[in-house]
Design a protein around this nucleic acid. Structure first.
Lengths: 224, 224
DNA sequence: CAGCAAGTGGACGCCACCCTCCACTTGCTC
DNA sequence: GAGCAAGTGGAGGGTGGCGTCCACTTGCTG
């Protein structure tokens, strides 16, 4: 019996290749996004595509392996923010950190605002981070610093917005996202100037996160 | 000598087909985005791809034809906002209208935050709208309603952000974008709570708008 | 109503990417 | 060091989009 979820139990050469693939994937995803051709990753890793598919039968498997560490780091950031004694600074710095992580990695930008059916591995970190963020929100509201109508669902919205700016400006204006985040953070400050439109229901938002990498494929109503 | 920029001078059947193609393109772009396969558009129009390419040799040509009216409508909205006697309401309603137009049309979302080398046709409207928007900004600042550090380059950033939310939520949470816009508008209200990170330079932003539909193709550094 | 330029559509060649399959190589075990 | 399960890589079949080309059709002109 070989091959546990990760590399343990593999032959040493196989394990070495596996790690090369993951490293290449991290690099390629960061640079080119999670839709980068599998062949590009194999090329960077110096292995054949066959090898890559043997170890990671689907793209989602590879994504899970490539971003596991970053997902944990992300959850860690939430945990650290909770430990910050200043509620408002904690809130701001967490939001900023998330956005900064997006700015540094095209692939992570997508992964943060998307959930993969397969990637159960991410769920634990996601939930941990979610709980910590909820705590941050409560604390900042209690301190009178965060507007009372802020809801946790707003964070994913901010991240999606940031993703949009990054997608458009990454190469030409790599600092533009900071401007957006500046506006958003300031808009979060108490007191609420005006009521806001309703936030999407958690279920809706969850469905939005679930959207597959490729929105929809088939589509041939055969008009006429 | 036939075929002026638009349909004049074409044989009547050809002109009818041309219009069908444009109508089909509008529909398909709105629904599926500007990357929809040419074949899908031809199918919807009930013509062969050959006919489509004869009239619109490149996708950009078709995009230009399909969105000409909306671009004009967009510029018109700016003009109307300028005529609103209330400076702040004018500013807000223009920003909201732009975002709403994005929400209603996947293709337009992209077109609004992108400029096509070929699409000289859009430039006039874009510049007209830009000038009007600059006037809105000045007026709202003068009235003490818009924060002094707002710059016109912020509008494209907002639109890119909105595009990101729309891309992620369009199907599952179609109202989520309103929440984002709510935050953004309120963040624009005077006085500036905190300084903002610098806005990108106009030139940078222009380069960002120019990014091709397909970010970059070739790419084979042949590592090793 | 004849003649022809204009117009048509879809088959086709091309290319990028996906993923599988299998003849060959290689580490590990005894 | 022999034997073999594990591992390898890349050729190749499948799919889907692009854009061209050309034999056929059709409106227009005289």
């Amino acid at each position: 019996m070989t091959s546990t979820p990760d590399g343990a139990g593999l032959r040493v050469d196989a394990e070495r290749n596996r790690q090369r693939v993951v490293a290449a994937a991290r690099e390629a995803f960061a640079e080119l996004g999670i839709e980068v051709p599998m062949e590009e990753i194999a090329r960077r890793a110096g292995v054949g595509v066959g090898t890559l598919y043997r170890r990671f039968p689907t793209r989602a498997d590879l994504i899970a392996a490539a971003f596991e560490a970053k997902m944990r780091a992300q959850a860690e950031a939430a945990r650290q923010a909770v430990e910050d004694p200043d509620p408002w600074r904690a809130f701001c710095s967490y939001v900023e950190q998330m956005c900064a992580m997006q700015a540094g990695d095209r692939g992570f930008t997508t992964v943060l605002t998307m959930t993969f059916p397969t990637a159960k591995r991410f769920e634990a970190d996601r939930e941990r981070a979610y709980a910590d963020f909820a705590a941050l929100v409560e604390r900042a509201k209690a301190a009178g610093k965060l507007r009372a109508d802020f809801v946790t669902e707003d964070l994913p919205i901010f991240l999606m917005a940031n993703a949009g700016v990054l997608a458009a400006t990454a190469d030409a204006a790599p600092e533009a996202w900071r401007r957006l985040v500046g506006y958003l953070i300031q808009a979060c400050a108490a007191p609420a100037a005006q009521p806001l439109p309703d936030a999407p229901a958690p279920r809706q938002l969850y469905r939005a996160l679930l959207r597959a990498t490729h929105p929809q494929r088939d589509r041939a109503p055969a008009k006429q």
